[in-house]
Design a protein around this nucleic acid. Structure first.
Lengths: 220, 220
DNA sequence: ATATTATTTTAGACAAAACTAAAAAATTGT
DNA sequence: ACAATTTTTTAGTTTTGTCTAAAATAATAT
């Protein structure tokens, strides 16, 4: 597989991740920052190799073979992200670009050993699940803290309100994207939530809880 | 820099590492497993970018700029080799192929952090020195144990005699390529040598000492 | 010294992956 | 329903790195 082919497969995977229908040529062109005509050319090549299902003017979808290729690239990408953050002390938001290069390194032994070295992580630093060797993974869901029951656990991946005041609050309370939180208790009276963080547990108001997204795995 | 350009630069560096004269087109073609005509084409491109000094029919040599590019690739290659052996438990002889891919990853921050993570190693698992960011490195020399004075230290990188009997002896005494040895004592009477290994110290006969190569750094 | 051999370069072609411009098909608006 | 618009595909180039075949230069041998 060429580097370029792998990038197309990945793009098609991500574009069909949620709607699961066939993907438009234009959409791929936009994602890949290229022209629709180039996309058509590449799709034909991928169809030749039966990595995608393709009929003229009807868009494309990944074949089962293509889906497994996509998942193996995503597995590599996410494992490298864990490595960069956990072992090399990169921050949460710096790792994507480098991982885009590392994901194309071809060596099964390397990925197996990297996986073991990292302690077989289940999610990457953004809270996204890491597929196993056979492409199996637990889907994750992004939810507001206020929507979650006691006992839930997840990685903080986003905010609803990005006002300076709110970000300042987060900073003061040592809450950063990429942190793992667990819901310990929900106060019936005012719906404030107690969450555990690395540095202890804190109580946050309902208003805060409706502005913080957690990425949850294992919820099915 | 293209992947291909980087490979040519590296090939030219390695071919001129010892004789330091200009390198023949044919030699590069052989190293790169390609045809001389392709080499000429690429050399012209590298000359355009003033990475090499080139005059028709006269061979090529790296410019200072080219030499620094070569050393930065070699730095990356050797750091990754250390990572693969020290952190991922690859063995000595498995790492080269994977490192050939990893050396092309473009990110200064990555290499800096990898270097720190590995504890700023001076040599790779083969005993070859790792250039620093500015391309400075201590040359290494390959010598027989019998040629070295007491106090020398180096990585075992090769054998003179590769008979089954000799290799069996090495195995029995837990001597493997990639091990680091130090010369503790040389017995005047029979020129036998005591060396320290990871698992203690052993005495080897002169015959053994004239059949084991160490790669020595810092001898200059 | 010059004929023979070996090396290196040129010229012309090809495959991969992109592009532009134009044609074909599908979708949308009235 | 059909004209206008949008999307997709085709056709023909371009660039990068390779190739083969042939020409040019250098090295060698008698």
């Amino acid at each position: 597989m060429t580097l370029s082919e792998e990038d197309y497969i990945k793009a098609i995977y991500h574009l069909s991740e949620f709607n699961s229908k066939s993907v438009a040529t234009n959409a791929i062109a936009e994602q890949m920052k290229t022209k629709p005509s180039s996309v058509t050319d590449m799709i034909k090549k991928l169809a030749e190799k039966s990595l995608v299902n393709y009929k003229k003017y009807q868009g494309v979808s990944l074949s089962e073979k293509g889906r497994l290729v996509a998942l193996s690239i995503i597995r590599k990408h996410r494992l490298w992200e864990v490595f960069l953050v956990d072992k090399l002390n990169f921050s949460w938001d710096e790792v994507h670009v480098v991982a885009e290069q590392l994901e194309h390194i071809k060596s099964d032994a390397l990925i197996d050993k990297l996986d073991a070295h990292l302690g077989f992580p289940k999610v990457d630093p953004h809270g996204d699940p890491i597929p196993n060797k056979d492409g199996v993974f637990t889907k994750s869901v992004k939810k507001l803290i206020s929507e979650l029951p006691v006992g839930s656990q997840g990685v903080c991946v986003g905010v609803n309100d990005s006002s300076a005041a709110f970000l300042k609050f987060l900073d003061k309370n040592k809450i950063s994207l990429g942190d793992t939180f667990k819901i310990l208790e929900i106060e019936e009276f005012d719906e404030s939530v107690t969450i555990s963080t690395r540095s202890g547990s804190i109580r946050i108001s309902k208003q805060i809880a409706t502005n913080l997204f957690l990425e949850i795995v294992d919820v099915e």
